[in-house]
Design a protein around this nucleic acid. Sequence first.
RNA 1: GGGCCCAUAGUUCAGUUUGGAUAGAAUGGCUGCCUGCGGAGCAGUUGGUCGAGGGUUCAAAUCCCUCUGGACCCGCCA
Length: 639
Amino acid sequence: MSFKKFIEQADEVIKFALEKLNLQGESYSLTEPAKEDFGDLSCNIAFLLIKKLEKSPYEIASMLIEQYIHNFDEKKRLESTPYVKSVVAHESGYINFKANFDLIGKEILNEILQNDFSYLDIGNGRKVIIEHTSVNPNKALHVGHLRNVAIGDTLYRLLKKTNHNVTVLNYVDDSGLQVADILVGFLYLKFPLIPEDKDLKFDTYCGNAIYVKVNELYEKDPSLVEKRKTLLKKLESGDAEISSFASEITLKVLNDQLKTCWRLKAHYDLLNFESHILNSDLWKNTFQKLRDQRIIKKETEGKNIGCWIFESVDEGIKIIVRSDNTATYIAKDIPYALLKIGTIQDPFKYKVFTNQWDDSNLWITTNDHLENDTHPIFFPAENSITVIDSRQTRLQKIIKEVLNKITEKSNEYLHLAYGPVLLSSRTANMLGINAENNNKSMQMSGRKGIYVDADYVLDTLHSKAKEEIIKRNPEITGADLEGTSEEIAISAMRYSLIKNDLEKEIKFDTIDSLSLEGNSGPYLQYAYARCCRLIEKSRIKSFDCNAINLSHDIEYHLIKHLSKFSIVIEDTIKNMEPKLIAQYAYDLATIFNLFYEKLPILKEKNADISNTRICLVEAIRLMLEMNLSLIGITPLERM
RNA sequence: GGGCCCAUAGUUCAGUUUGGAUAGAAUGGCUGCCUGCGGAGCAGUUGGUCGAGGGUUCAAAUCCCUCUGGACCCGCCA
């Protein structure tokens, strides 16, 4: 927290000086300087006053500081702005501040070691819904889907930690064409219900063998396309036999998909099925509302004759209901969005679907008659976040536009977009799917079978991690070895999926992604393990950081970084940028590694200095622990 | 054709929201550092007309315009 107070007090100094000179109203900035030598905070106010005062920046900066120094003697300065150690006018024109890290250090170490994170209450119990994952239930997850899971779950962890009341939804689109494709495979191409290879996951079987094969055959055999159309109609009209078979298949796929998600330690609260939304009053009522309020209209001529359409101001005409009265993909998202923000009543009954990895219940909507219908309150929320890749931005804009016409709460509906994951040219070449053999990255495609399976990558990372552990810690064996390897694999995967800017696409390379070194999840875990060993060897049980003695630049660096955490987490939440936490954790680990390399900790002869350093290590350990858990990485004591 | 996004070191990316001091990491290449608190580490070196051109400004990777190259969206698919 302390660094924030330092900024506030530096701001007070500037404000005071401006007031004394009657120069209020300039929107200056207080930022961290490029170089440490300049101090901990810089103000650019002097540059902004050049024209007004017709003086050089340095003269102006000196003049401002003079006001402050002149009106406050040293004692008064310490009393009113204790976090500011010094202020100087630099010849460049900047006003540079130094922070009082002896004070900040004491405060921040006490705060961390006493587990005082009251500043984390940003949400004040605010209810937030996050929808993520939402993979069609006809295939196994590929690495592209994992980016969605990693972003969504990190957001969930961040919001929960900052006292938001978070509900995580996973939307299962169980009634579209892609499900009909799989049914074609089973019913007409006679794929066996149980794959011949007993070790093959059912989701992989459907996605790899059936989905790809069926889509190939459509081109050769048009009668199959007709069969799919018939199946889809039966599905949407709720034909008992077909619906029940489809439900059996999609649930089997879903179960296997969830295994992959849970492997990454993603948490969900509720599964929403598209078929349930269609078959409830949700869709019927929404359709009615859209017609009554003349938000959609029926085309009586032209190519869209017979369809109910929405005319978007920016995006043109969008079909909501087809001429055969079936709802399009976007149509089904409208009632779902209204449900999330509370414009329509929740019509569902709920039952527990299963207990998941973190021992929480995963719920599911149901039409079953229930003796006891007690369940958590899922809807509505004050904010709804939908994690979907940027290719769907246009559709999400249209949904928002429709919501705008229905309710004033539409601003509570946020599409969190992120760039898709592409295969690097090297990886595409390795998979033999880059026919041109050029240097371009490739879009993945489930339908064409161009993708890298998520479990495959995790398995490969697991084996690699295992080799590394055996090399350095042969005493780790059995379940410990497997467990630790798995945690390292997850760490590498999750970290690499959130460390980049959301809007940038990720070029996935199987070789690069296997690296457990450098700016990676395992690097963070390694720093954590080092901290653990130091604390263990110090044999200190309770930490006293009231008598700390900071004696080296690196220690000040560490204090500074630790004290900035509250600012970073605020920025992360405000801007919805998970990468900021990843970057913060990486920087912390880097400074710690430097500290560890350069300064004796346990071996330090001076007891005060040694004690201070051990306190620092413990604070770093706790802070790494918190950051890692926010990203969904398990801190490891040994690896 | 319309819309939207991107372009920074050999490669993968920070930095752009809010202009500011010598543009930073990681990785790759080369070179050092383990009888020492864990070498999944640390240090050094190599490597950049910040896509091009113009404009605004005391100051531009950052803001504006034009152009070039690339990706994505524009379906009675989801």
